[in-house]
């Protein structure tokens, strides 16, 4: 019975849902979104690709010439890479919309600009 009263009360309230693609919720401060590499800081130690639990980070070459390939389709957004980076070159952004049709487009490449 009391649920009927509750339901009547709800009629006069605005909906709790958002019209998603047009309105978006705020993400909290420490949200773990897609990691982004700052290649000016990166020294190419390869620690991020070694600690990654799902093997989403590939390192080509070594040292300052290293190139990083980040496969977002494999990434589980745990934040381990940014936590273990000795130079703080990796930041977790608040991007969370990664869905897509093509896995090839989900690879981000980072290279040091000389």
């Amino acid at each position: 019975m009391s649920i009927i009263l509750e339901a009547i009360r709800q009629i006069f309230k605005s909906p709790i849902t958002l019209k998603y693609p047009f309105e978006k919720t705020d993400v909290p401060k420490d949200f773990r979104g897609r990691p982004v590499w700052n290649m000016q800081k990166c020294v190419g130690c390869g620690l991020c690709s070694r600690v990654c639990p799902s093997g989403a980070i590939e390192m080509i070459g070594k040292g300052l010439k290293a190139e990083i390939k980040h496969y977002v389709d494999r990434c589980i957004f745990c934040g381990q890479c940014s936590e273990s980076c000795p130079r703080n070159a990796i930041t977790m952004t608040d991007e969370f919309e990664h869905a897509g049709y093509d896995r090839e487009k989900m690879i981000y490449e980072y290279r040091r600009e000389s």
Partner: peptide
């Protein structure tokens, strides 16, 4: 989400303690 940074997979525990 506010505490851990994710709604479902909190990634709070680590071997030897917690991360946040």
């Amino acid at each position: 989400e506010f505490i851990s940074g994710n709604r479902v997979h909190y990634a709070m525990n680590t071997i030897g303690g917690v991360r946040r």
